[in-house]
């Protein structure tokens, strides 16, 4: 995995035309009858191979619901999602999810190393292969040598890195991240934002990153999708043309960065707050 420039074979097999993730007319309504709640009215967008897309929206909008639908953990009421050209009908093989609660998404009875290869072990990937991918993934996130430790012995930032390593070892086409740094302190958050950018640079992975932090969304993304309040649709899609590699100091001082974040902020501020 280290040094590879492109993700899974299935994704590679696609032509440049087929997006690696496609969401078509997605709608989610909870319940039925008069008490029904429409979380998502209609969402359609696509993500190309190697893109870094951030999804932002006011709190209460269906960010989580959207991610669950793409990850196959939730059946949408309308529309569908396609990952690597295949329709999502249950957790897709080419997708890895990084959860927000790092301290609950890592299994406490497994060491860091075992956690990283947990999905592979359960799928009976050969041992040698598992260990190779484990090593590469941990190296990618800067935790080489932490195999034998337990997740609860690590700091929050390190735990989230383990979760990311787990996603990387899985070798997906798309990495979904659900507000992954929201529960971390500012310093860890900055470090991890840079880590994800670096990983994406090194592997060419496609990343879909949900966040409520506007600065983070502009800093990380190639494109920012701004959602409306419930019932959610796309408010606007903003392209981010900032120079790469991004840097916490220079990029954030760049006038274009300031303009973009102001624009996103305005879009979100104009949304009504969640009832």
């Amino acid at each position: 995995m280290s040094g590879r420039q492109d993700p899974t074979a299935s994704a590679r097999a696609q032509t440049a035309k087929t997006p690696v993730l496609e969401v078509r007319d997605l709608g989610v309504t909870y319940g039925s009858g008069p008490g029904a709640v429409m979380a998502i009215r209609e969402l359609s967008f696509s993500v190309d191979l190697g893109e870094f897309v951030c999804i932002v929206g006011p709190s209460g909008c269906g960010k989580t619901t959207l991610l669950k639908s793409i990850a196959g953990l939730l059946s949408p009421t309308r529309g569908e999602a396609y990952v690597a050209g295949k329709r999502v009908e249950g957790p897709p093989k080419d997708l890895a999810l990084v959860f927000q609660e790092y301290n609950r998404s890592l299994l406490p009875w497994l060491s860091v190393g075992d956690n990283v290869t947990f999905p592979l072990a359960a799928r009976k990937v050969p041992k040698a292969d598992q260990l190779a991918r484990r090593k590469a993934a941990l190296a990618q996130v800067g935790l080489l040598g932490f195999d034998e430790k337990y997740p609860w012995q690590l700091s929050g930032g390190m735990q989230q890195r383990v979760a990311i390593a787990r996603g990387l070892a899985y070798e997906p086409a798309v990495l979904l991240m659900d507000e992954p740094f929201a529960s971390l302190d500012a310093q860890s958050r900055a470090d991890l934002e840079d880590l994800v950018l670096k990983v994406q640079r090194d592997t060419g992975l496609t990343v879909v990153f949900v966040t409520h932090d506007i600065d983070e969304s502009v800093y990380e993304a190639d494109r920012v999708i701004v959602l409306t309040q419930r019932p959610t649709t796309i408010r606007q899609v903003i392209g981010v043309d900032l120079p790469k590699p991004r840097d916490q100091i220079t990029t954030k001082a760049h006038p274009e960065f300031v303009r973009l974040r102001t624009e996103v902020l305005k879009l979100i501020k104009n949304e009504p707050t969640a009832s």
Partner: peptide, 27 residues
């Protein structure tokens, strides 16, 4: 059993039997 463990397992495509043996019982 913490539902997040199960969500993680499901998101990585583990079958029910796998989830039972690898997640529920240890937890």
């Amino acid at each position: 059993v913490d539902p997040v463990y199960l969500e993680v397992a499901r998101s990585y495509g583990l079958s029910f039997a796998d989830r039972l043996w690898h997640v529920i019982i240890p937890a």
